[in-house]
Nucleic acid binder design. Structure first.
Lengths: 136, 136
DNA sequence: TCAGGTACTTACCAAAAGGTGCATACTTGT
DNA sequence: ACAAGTATGCACCTTTTGGTAAGTACCTGA
């Protein structure tokens, strides 16, 4: 099993191209950290422009405050585009910028990994949850 | 630019195979959320088994408390393996399990994305930081 | 007229995440 | 004898994150 690792494709080194980031991964993490951001990005990547309300209903359990906040940050970071149709009642929709879309594509392997290993993950998580709630 | 998106490879839908997770991405996020986890995984993926102290020095700015804590969770989640050589003074090293390594591989695109777009990210981040520190 | 929907904003609070520093038990080097 | 290093544990505290509930300005349908 230790030989496995040696045989697997080596993980490319992460170049610390710019100061302030230890590596590319670090840079990416700064932009997608936040409970809902990856989910928002991924959802937007699947359907096209989406109205606020739809998004709200799609990303289950998110509150208005959080959704708005994360959307603003994503917008400030140039990952999503907000379109205000300036109608009354309000109509606004969100879509991915090309940059955002490229990030969403980079999320695909994570999504795949999660799907493939969901059984493992859920087992571990059930243990954690039970351990947190009950006694042992 | 809106046609761009249509032309790009469609992001595969995320199957909610098991209850409790909205999709695979969600599952993955549960396991790697934590300021240092992706960095730890990635570092371990590059060099083999690593002693605690080395790891500590490698992942810059991490405190003992945090590093230990995250390592424990990663271990509990079956992503890293802890080997205590039961020596005195203490000698312990950490390495990736096969599952952990597969996850590290899934992180590669994120790392690449960050490297490629580091200029963008750092610009945005500089703005955020300055805006937080200064007044406007 | 009144409930309900739109896309938010704000104030207030709880929980989680994270940091600092001290302690341990034993070693090696000075 | 004493400082320093090893891999942690623990108590205390601050910062960040996230949630709840209310309000806004306007519209539509009953």
């Amino acid at each position: 099993m230790s030989d496995d690792l040696a045989a697997l494709p080596p993980v490319p080194a992460c170049t610390p191209t710019l100061p302030g980031f230890t590596c590319g991964l670090d840079a990416t993490l700064r932009v997608i950290s936040g409970k809902w951001k990856p989910l928002i990005l991924y959802f937007l990547a699947q359907g096209g422009p989406t109205r606020y309300g739809e998004l709200r209903r799609a990303v289950r359990d998110v509150s208005d405050k959080m959704l708005i906040q994360q959307l603003k940050e994503l917008e400030a970071d140039g990952l999503v585009t907000r379109t205000d149709h300036r109608e009354i009642p309000p109509r606004v929709d969100y879509s991915l910028s090309p940059l955002g879309h490229s990030l969403a594509l980079a999320l695909v392997p994570l999504c795949t990994w999660g799907t493939e290993n969901m059984a493992e993950v859920s087992r571990v998580y059930a243990r954690r949850a039970g351990w947190a709630a009950g006694k042992e």
